[in-house]
Nucleic acid binder design. Structure first.
Length: 227
DNA sequence: TAGGCCATCTGGTCCT
DNA sequence: AGGACCAGATGGCCTA
């Protein structure tokens, strides 16, 4: 990760993550991102991806090397779906005009890049699978940015919960009674904290949406379960 | 229809 | 030299 990206994530954490925390942190990731009309699950495959998936479904496909001329789906792709380099000539290097050798190399690079991005998406899918949010066929999957922010928030809350558990154990070992039902350490963001999967966490998405008074963020627009 | 999200292509840069 | 990584550009799909 370069410095610019790191700064970007930091800036995101300052603004959006707070948003995230107030909306989902309060409900401890148990939100249901109901999204009625959207097609759930994996994104629809483009012709090129279709072609790839026809051979191998996942980026394990990266293991199976294929010739660049064939595996990148160039001949199967809708030209509108191709990147800029195919259409414009801003670099004066339209692929079709390149020598066969260069074209072959370019196609190979394209295929490699595609596999890399598929690997990245697979990793994101893996992350989504372990983030506690409503997994359901009728629920649209989290966007990439929402997945990352939610994962970060979840890790922070888990760490704080663990720390509070340690303190509770130490406290109980002293043989004293607990007077505060909600340890302050469980209010990581200045609010009453709720553990994931608690009864409060299972509150309806509508409640969560309405209880939030902040500025709407596109990150949460997938939550369709609004009043 | 605008905006969000995404897949893909591409050239550049860095690393091994 | 080849591969990984990155960011910019482009266009499609979907939703409000």
């Amino acid at each position: 990760m370069n410095v610019g990206e790191e700064n970007l994530l930091k800036s995101i954490s300052n603004d959006t993550l707070l948003d995230l925390t107030q909306r989902y942190g309060q409900s401890s990731f148990g939100f249901g991102a109901g999204h009625g009309a959207g097609s759930p699950g994996r994104y629809p495959l483009t012709p090129a991806a279709d072609f790839l998936s026809g051979q191998t479904t996942k980026s394990n496909e990266s293991g199976g090397e294929q010739t660049s001329e064939d595996d990148d789906g160039f001949d199967h792709m809708d030209s509108r779906k191709r990147g800029s380099g195919f259409d414009d000539d801003k670099h004066g290097t339209t692929l079709a005009k390149k020598p066969k050798e260069q074209r072959s190399l370019r196609l190979s690079i394209n295929a490699r890049e595609r596999r890399r991005m598929h690997d990245l998406n697979d990793a994101l899918d893996g992350l989504r699978a372990v983030i506690p949010y409503a997994h359901s066929p009728s629920v649209r999957k989290l966007s990439k940015i929402a997945t990352l922010l939610l994962a970060k928030n979840y890790i922070l809350m888990q760490a704080q919960a663990l720390e509070e558990m340690r303190r509770l154990v130490a406290y109980l070992n002293q043989g004293q009674t607990i007077t505060s039902p909600i340890p302050t350490a469980l209010a990581p963001f200045g609010q009453t904290a709720v553990y994931p999967f608690s009864s409060t966490a299972l509150a309806s998405c509508a409640e969560k949406c309405t209880s939030y008074s902040g500025t709407p963020s596109s990150l949460f627009k997938h939550c369709n379960d609004k009043p």
